[in-house]
Amino acid sequence: MTEQAPAEETFISHLVELRDRLVKALIGVALVCAGLFLWPGPADIYDFIARPMIESLPPGSKMIATGVISPFLVPMKVTLVLAIILALPWVFYQMWAFIAPGLYAHEKRLVLPLVLSSSALFMAGVAFCYFLVFGRVFKFIGEFAPTSIAVTPDIENYLDFVMSMCLAFGATFEVPVVVVILVRMGIVSVAKLKEIRPYAIVGAFAIAAIVTPPDAVSMLALAIPMCLLFEVGILLAPLFVRATQAPEEPELKT
């Protein structure tokens, strides 16, 4: 029993450290959320999120709320989601700080850039979706609406659509990180990735067709960046492999 005590103490200390990091991450999200509540406020944040849809509607048109508490609850949800996205660098830093003590120096050179690039790429995907995709998609869909139909989207349905699209774009913008990790772990080589490039392109269009609305504009808006980011991952993977190579580790085939 005495021999197991140090191991048990180490396990408990890791749990305590994990708890502290989770608490710090939640505090960071809460502080960002509180700041957004103070300025610009949930109502203005939702107006900003809804702007691409409002601009695609006929002049004077507005969105509707079919639920009793929807005008209150939906802006709150939007504010919380935005706070989580803005706090991603802090959340990822807490993850990094938790695992860093157990890493070698060459591994730290890999993990920290990946943590930073993951948060940056996710936010870039969300921004790309909002600023470049939404306006075109809503305008494209609105052009097909019959004149006998009054287009008055429900705010809850709109929020669900926006969140799913932003999540899809944010996740797919992580393609370079996935490629770098696969190559660094030796699961696949850069030469193999170049060989399967045609299949990756088909896969990108298949994923885009599944996660986006059934229109060509949004599908192309997601599939083309995925293909380009796949190529970026192929270009960066050898650089990461060389930068994070352990002194005694044989060189990985790229």
Rank of each mutant, 00 (worst) to 15 (best):
G102P: 02
A97Q: 14
L82S: 11
P40A: 10
M63Y: 07
L36R: 06
F173S: 02
D44W: 08
A243Q: 10
L121S: 10
A5E: 10
V162W: 01
W90H: 13
P146I: 12
F92H: 03
K62Q: 13
I210L: 14
E107Q: 11
S118V: 09
D154I: 10
Q94A: 13
E156D: 10
F122L: 10
P58I: 03
S218L: 08
W90P: 02
I54D: 01
P6I: 07
G233P: 12
A100E: 15
F169C: 08
R51A: 13
V16T: 14
T254A: 07
I141Q: 12
L57I: 03
I45V: 14
F48L: 14
E248P: 03
G186P: 06
P42D: 09
A216H: 05
T254E: 14
T10N: 04
A7K: 07
V162N: 05
V179W: 01
A206S: 14
V232Y: 05
V23H: 02
A124M: 15
G203K: 01
P247S: 03
V178F: 13
P146R: 09
F98L: 13
I181H: 00
S118H: 06
E251I: 11
V188M: 09
G125M: 10
A127T: 15
I12H: 01
G102N: 06
P198K: 14
A204W: 05
M123W: 07
E143P: 00
Q245A: 13
I45P: 00
Y46C: 00
V180W: 05
A145C: 02
L26Y: 04
D20W: 08
A87H: 05
A34G: 15
F98A: 10
L121G: 03
W96D: 06
F37R: 00
L239C: 11
V202S: 10
A120E: 03
V111W: 07
G102F: 12
L132C: 09
A25L: 07
F169V: 09
V115H: 04
S118W: 05
I49Q: 01
Y158G: 07
S70E: 14
I207S: 04
W39Q: 09
